[in-house]
């Protein structure tokens, strides 16, 4: 009960911090559009390569789920900056010396980043639609589930790193060092069947690619639902593990104190 109340209150607080920096809020909407339009223009003709994706799919349709997941992953990787900021002030210490539920501190951050990522995903879909991409609307809720699970995996990871390092530079370094290679070792912007064999193999173990595959399949005209739910199940399991790790990172924080 109190864990739920605490989650609600801490989520509201996270929402206030985002909304009070309008530039930040606007950038969160604009950035995925930059990805969408940039990559969309850059690689328009790759669909003409024989063997690329499903025949009849435009490149815009191909990358839209990729861009949705990129936005979710890159956004979630920033989650820990809030924790570092709170630790640099005495806010985190104050929270940890209060009865506030540790799980609620983690989950509130995941909830808020998921809400933001879902909203961004809808904006990306709408813009892609306006530019002529067509998707199976019924798949959108499933794709959003993928967005939420991916966000939880990376926000929890970012929070764990934040609690262990308590430094913005270290956190940003580690997050970028991880997310950028994961993005390229996936089918987000390129069909991995056309990449080197090892890239295709690596992508199979890449949680980011799980989300991209699930999202793309869900939006396609003939989804392979077995593949979709298989990937989502993997993501869900990893999200639970990461959240547990991030919550136990509070213990390391206390031991180091």
């Amino acid at each position: 009960m109190s864990a739920l109340t605490h989650t609600a209150m801490l989520t509201a607080r996270a929402q206030r911090s985002t909304m009070r920096v309008p530039v930040f809020a606007v950038m969160q909407i604009v950035q995925p559009l930059i990805w969408l339009l940039l990559f969309g223009q850059l690689f328009t003709s790759v669909v003409e390569i024989p063997g690329f994706a499903t025949p009849g799919t435009t490149y815009l349709e191909f990358i839209t789920p990729g861009v949705v997941m990129m936005t979710a992953m890159f956004g979630a990787a920033w989650a820990g900056t809030g924790i570092v900021e709170d630790s640099e002030r005495g806010v985190m210490d104050h929270l940890l010396a209060s009865p506030a539920s540790r799980v609620a501190i983690q989950v509130s951050s995941l909830v808020w980043y998921s809400v933001v990522a879902a909203a961004q995903a809808l904006v990306v879909l709408a813009v892609a639609w306006l530019r002529g991409a067509r998707f199976d609307v019924a798949g959108i809720p499933v794709m959003l589930l993928g967005v939420v699970l991916l966000t939880c995996v990376f926000a929890a990871m970012s929070n764990a790193v934040a609690l262990l390092t308590r430094q913005q530079q270290a956190l940003i370094g580690i997050s970028q060092g991880l997310t950028i290679p994961l993005m390229f070792l996936s089918s987000a912007v390129m069909d991995t069947r056309l990449s080197a064999g090892w890239v295709e193999a690596a992508a199979r173990f890449n949680p980011f690619d799980w989300a991209v595959v699930a999202g793309r399949q869900a939006l396609s005209a003939t989804p392979d639902w077995g593949l979709v739910w298989g990937r989502l199940a993997l993501l869900a399991a990893l999200a639970v593990v990461m959240t547990a790790l991030a919550t136990s990172a509070f213990r390391a924080y206390r031991r180091a104190a």
Binding site: T5, M9, S17, R89, V91, D93, H94, L95, P99, A100
Partner: peptide, 24 residues
């Protein structure tokens, strides 16, 4: 607990900071 460093969030109002602390 009032640490050496500020225990309030700079981007919240003082009322918000107080009410959150009380609710927690």
């Amino acid at each position: 607990y009032v640490s050496q460093r500020p225990v309030t969030r700079a981007m919240d109002t003082s009322r918000e900071n107080l009410e959150l602390a009380g609710r927690l």
